[in-house]
Simulated assay, not measured.
Amino acid sequence: MIHTKEKKFEAVFREHFKELHGYAYRMIGNSDAAEEIVQHVFLKLWERDWEKTLQSSWKAYLYRSVHNQTLNTLKRYKLQQRYEAYQTVHAENLQDLPFGEQELKKELHAALAKLPEKSRIVFEMSRFQELRYKEIADTLNLSVKTVEGHMTKALRHLRVHLIDYLTVLVLLFTYKL
């Protein structure tokens, strides 16, 4: 049965990869990024119970998934470009700060260690593993509202404990941690 499931998944992959790659490429204009996007979609599908997840046609589901993943990738690219432009303009100001990136990471991890365990785990899954609240809720067997509550608690805690680092934290956290 496992071999049948793998063969079926491979057949779906082979049948749709090329056209999905072309679709992502038209949206993003980069062949390597398009390939990565399509592979990411298939990886996420494989990690889920993919035969039960799908309730519409394979083609519609895959195109929607690639579309959404491509939009997310484009948002990250734009955000990264804005950050790089900001960093170029403000590089001198960042060098004048009394602390470095390593100290900031150390303070962040120290502040995270002071959080209640569930709030810390939810925060790390959201920010470090880039999982959505629904995915976190499913993984931890919590409601989405509970995950939101833990994130609110974690962010409030970090704002209080890292107030001196907040500006740099926002910039660095998005791109380097």
Rank of each mutant, 00 (worst) to 15 (best):
I2R: 15
I2Q: 15
H3R: 14
K5W: 05
E6C: 10
E6M: 13
E6K: 14
K7D: 15
K8E: 14
K8W: 05
A11T: 15
V12S: 09
V12Y: 02
F13A: 05
E15H: 14
F17W: 09
K18S: 15
E19S: 15
E19C: 06
Y23S: 08
A24F: 08
A24R: 10
M27Y: 06
I28W: 04
G29A: 06
G29M: 05
S31F: 07
S31Y: 11
A34L: 08
A34K: 08
E35R: 08
E35T: 02
V38K: 02
V38T: 01
V38G: 01
H40I: 00
V41M: 01
V41W: 01
E47Q: 10
E47P: 00
R48V: 01
L54E: 06
L54I: 15
S56H: 03
S57A: 03
S57D: 09
W58G: 02
W58S: 06
K59S: 11
A60N: 07
Y61M: 03
L62M: 05
L62T: 05
Y63H: 09
R64V: 00
S65E: 13
S65H: 03
N68W: 05
Q69L: 04
L71W: 06
K75Y: 02
K75L: 09
L79C: 04
Q80Y: 10
Q81S: 09
R82C: 10
Y83N: 03
E84A: 07
Q87D: 07
T88I: 03
E92P: 09
N93R: 14
L94D: 12
Q95N: 12
D96Q: 15
F99S: 09
E103K: 07
E103R: 07
K106T: 11
H109K: 11
L112P: 12
A113K: 15
A113F: 11
K114I: 08
L115P: 07
L115N: 12
P116C: 11
E117K: 13
E117P: 06
V122R: 04
F123Q: 10
E124Y: 01
E124G: 00
M125W: 08
R127H: 13
R127W: 08
Q129T: 01
E130P: 00
Y133D: 12
A137K: 04
A137I: 05
D138Y: 00
D138R: 01
D138P: 00
T139D: 10
T139V: 11
S143P: 05
T146P: 00
E148C: 00
E148Y: 05
G149W: 00
K153W: 12
K153Q: 13
A154G: 04
A154M: 05
L155I: 07
R156L: 11
H157M: 06
H157I: 03
R159V: 02
V160K: 13
D164W: 09
T167Y: 09
V168R: 13
L169H: 06
V170H: 11
L171D: 11
L172H: 10
Y175K: 10
